[in-house]
Amino acid sequence: MSYRFEWDVVFNADMVTIVTIGLRYTLIVSFLSLIFGNCVGLIAAVLRISGKPPLPQLAYIYIDFFRTTPALVQLIWIFYVLPIIAGIDLSPIAAGVIALSLNAGAFLAEVFRAGIESIGKGQRDATFVLGLSRFQSFVHVLLPQALRRVLPATGNVLISLIKDSALLTTIAVPELTYQFQTDVARTFRPLELYTALAVMYFLLTYPLSLAASALERRYRVT
């Protein structure tokens, strides 16, 4: 190999700033998308199992569309096309969070739905004979059990979102990948910088995957 790695471009004072800013945006975007994604996913799951047309069909269209198109395409569409159609202004971060939330939400909707449906019919029978309304039975009995089933999946969704947050560099959100790309343009040292970037993502997601496995073991549903 004739290339000489010179790591001074990575291990210097500027890098601290770059990483700090980049990390901040990466984490903010990922966590916001996780929260909104869960909300959207739960709503979509409830609509799907509600059985009152056209709600299940609408939910199904949403879920299907966001699971079968590339996240990058969804992101570009929401940033460039949606504002024109809807006549609104979308900052890059807003567009990024919306796109990632809808994307994660579609996946989570299926997880929630499976979680809710996996709760035996007997639970609903019991709430019925006790006199609970359908709403009460959902909120106090079904949802808590569904959440316990969904919790292990949440760790993996967060990891997924952290990785997908890199896509936001295409719409100039100053997250980690964008910061490194800018630095590469400045220093012309892509090998060292992109290697460092990959390591950074690994350091972010690996502890999370360990935590997610631990969560899965603890909340395993017998």
């Binding site: 007997g122 639970q123 029978d125 006790l130 006199g131 609970l132 009460q136 106090h140 009995v141 059990q145």
Partner: peptide
């Protein structure tokens, strides 16, 4: 036959739930 207790609640909470809600 299969009890249908609410697994995320204690015995007392199971018994009290309908009293509180209904």
């Amino acid at each position: 036959q299969h009890f249908n207790l609410f697994p995320h609640m204690t015995a007392r909470q199971n018994v009290a739930l309908a009293l509180r809600l209904v």
